[in-house]
Computed example of a mutant assay.
Amino acid sequence: MDYSATPSGFRQRKLQPKVRMRNQAADAADHTQLFDDTSAGARPPGYRGQETPGMGYSGQALLSDPMSNLAMAYGSSLASQGKEMVDKNLDRFIPISKLKYYFAVDTVYVGKKLGLLVFPYMHQNWEVSYQQDTPVAPRFDINAPDLYIPAMAFITYILVAGLALGTQNRFTPEILGMQASSALVWLIIEVLATLLSLYLVTVNTDLTTIDLIAFSGYKYVGMIVGVVAGLLFGRTGYYLMLLWCCASIFVFMIRTLRLKILSEAAAEGVLVRGAKNQLRMYLTMAIAAAQPIFMYWLTFHLVR
């Protein structure tokens, strides 16, 4: 219906601008109220507010509090006691102080020891030096056992085995893991068998488990030499170098262990010494003869 011709229609058209003006004014008021900061509306200019007690404490004041100092001292005491307890229990299962002795090496010692392992035939004095009933550190005595060379030789052997498998297109992470696990398991079995044999033969010796691990780990040096020779010169080079290293480690173990295993025989009687000397010598030769067997068993499949 058209309202433009009626008086009421005319009034309707006249009222529309006023309605729109009131709506715009209301929107402006709402907009102003929405964005104005009402939090400071009741505060005069320059009002900073009253500070709450305790809000202005600095870090220095907190540290100077006697209760805080007491809590910090108590926490430090608990931490030191916990560290001593951990060190005591850890040293019970893992002799950290003894391990430091076996890793006390330097470059000169490592070079001489590697030469002794590969060429032990001209070495004369095989006795370990002592100072006040304590063996000197390996860096001062080439005859002292260490764990640095066995540990590094074991890791290097795994890397060389991976290289050999890679040149034959047989490398996979699973095979390399099995190679490392196999070498470690055989080392543990060898050490346990040696300990059991020493117990059964009733040998009174100063050989420790760590000493046996060190002596058994020296064979990895010859294994590395044999595998590298196989990679460079084929199976012929592998067999020649492995044969040389097997003979070297056999001589090294015989001359080293006979002083350890037979050292207590002189303090016993003649009859006892005569009866047990043969068993001890057989045990020494068995330990030395096991090294070439493990060397061949763990490397023959790496060279083709």
Rank of each mutant, 00 (worst) to 15 (best):
L195R: 08
K98M: 06
A229E: 02
V272N: 13
T134D: 03
I293G: 06
I158Q: 07
K219N: 12
S97R: 12
I158C: 10
T205Y: 00
M1V: 11
W297C: 08
P135I: 00
V185P: 03
M285K: 08
D91S: 13
K276Q: 10
L240C: 04
M1E: 14
P135G: 02
S248L: 01
F103M: 02
L114E: 05
L195A: 04
F250V: 05
G82F: 14
V136M: 01
F300C: 12
A289L: 04
D211R: 00
M55N: 15
H301Q: 13
A71N: 06
L63A: 13
A42I: 11
I249G: 01
D146A: 00
M21G: 11
L116G: 05
G166R: 15
T236K: 08
L117V: 01
T172A: 04
S97F: 09
A290V: 06
Y199H: 11
Y74I: 10
A265C: 07
P173V: 03
R11E: 08
L184V: 03
A137I: 04
L242Q: 08
V272T: 15
R273T: 14
D87L: 14
V185H: 07
K18L: 15
R273A: 15
E174T: 11
A193E: 00
G46N: 04
A28Y: 11
K112C: 02
S248I: 01
Y199F: 14
L187R: 12
G177V: 01
D36E: 12
D133H: 03
F171L: 14
K260P: 07
V108I: 13
V303H: 06
G46Q: 02
M281F: 06
V160N: 10
D37H: 10
A25M: 13
F215L: 09
G41R: 12
L147P: 02
D65N: 12
R280K: 14
S182Q: 10
G75F: 07
L90I: 06
T172F: 01
H123Q: 06
K18W: 12
A26M: 14
P53Y: 12
D211V: 01
F300K: 12
K219C: 05
L212R: 01
S248M: 02
Y57S: 13
L302N: 05
D206W: 04
S68I: 13
I94V: 15
V251P: 03
M21V: 12
A104Q: 07
P53M: 10
D91G: 07
R43I: 09
F93T: 15
V160C: 11
N143A: 00
V110C: 08
L298I: 04
M55Q: 15
L117D: 02
M85F: 12
Q278M: 11
R235A: 10
M241R: 02
P7I: 09
F294S: 13
V105W: 00
Y130F: 05
G166W: 13
V118N: 04
Y130S: 00
G49P: 03
F250Y: 09
T172N: 01
S263G: 15
M72K: 09
V118A: 11
L163A: 12
Y47N: 05
A286V: 09
P95E: 05
T32P: 06
A71Y: 11
R13Q: 14
S97W: 07
S39I: 03
T156I: 09
V203A: 05
I158Y: 03
D206R: 09
I96M: 08
D133V: 00
K83S: 14
A26W: 09
L262V: 09
L279P: 06
